[in-house]
């Protein structure tokens, strides 16, 4: 039965490769995200890579496995949470008198713990972008086609 095979995902080679690489892709995304303020990269790129690791999982194992790891409601929650974190960090800038003020001590340049609020903002953006892109992918996959009869004629 082809429908049963599709539910369990693609061939053994693809599934094995996906199982081996998915962790590294996720880790690489986290690296890009956490070094966003000292090297090229940042919240958007990191978020996209993190989303790609889940998308790989979904392509290899089918939608049920990926959705059991990261359900739709959780994705939507993380997306909104990212936006709210971003907004509240920006609002906390009012403690120093300005919206979006970088109110934490900046530290030394080119160290991981530096640049004040920027790593936190990167984190919020990566939550928003990663969850958003995964949600878009899920929405496109789950959309059911129910072709209507052409009523016009």
């Amino acid at each position: 039965m082809s429908s049963k095979e599709r539910q369990t995902g693609m061939s053994v080679i693809v599934r094995t490769t996906a199982r081996l690489t998915v962790g590294f892709i996720l880790l690489y995304g986290i690296y890009i995200l956490s070094h966003g303020h000292v090297s090229p990269g940042g919240g958007f790129a990191g978020g996209v890579i993190i989303a790609l690791s889940f998308i790989n999982l979904m392509l290899a194992y089918g939608k049920d496995t990926a959705l059991s790891k990261l359900p739709k409601a959780v994705t939507s929650f993380f997306e909104n949470l990212g936006a709210l974190i971003l907004l509240s960090i920006a609002l906390l800038g009012f403690t120093g008198g300005y919206f979006f003020l970088n109110f934490i001590a900046k530290g030394e340049p080119f160290h991981l713990f530096s640049a004040g609020t920027i790593p936190l903002l990167n984190l919020a953006i990566s939550l928003k972008v990663g969850a958003g892109i995964f949600a878009i992918f899920v929405a496109f996959v789950l959309l059911k086609y129910e072709p209507e009869k052409n009523k016009k004629e």
């Binding site: 929650f77 909104n80 609002l91």
Partner: peptide, 20 residues
Amino acid sequence: VNIIPIFVIVPLAGAFMISI
């Protein structure tokens, strides 16, 4: 002068809170 960013903050915050 701090009133100016309010016009952007309030609707965006409201939108994401409703979405959650």
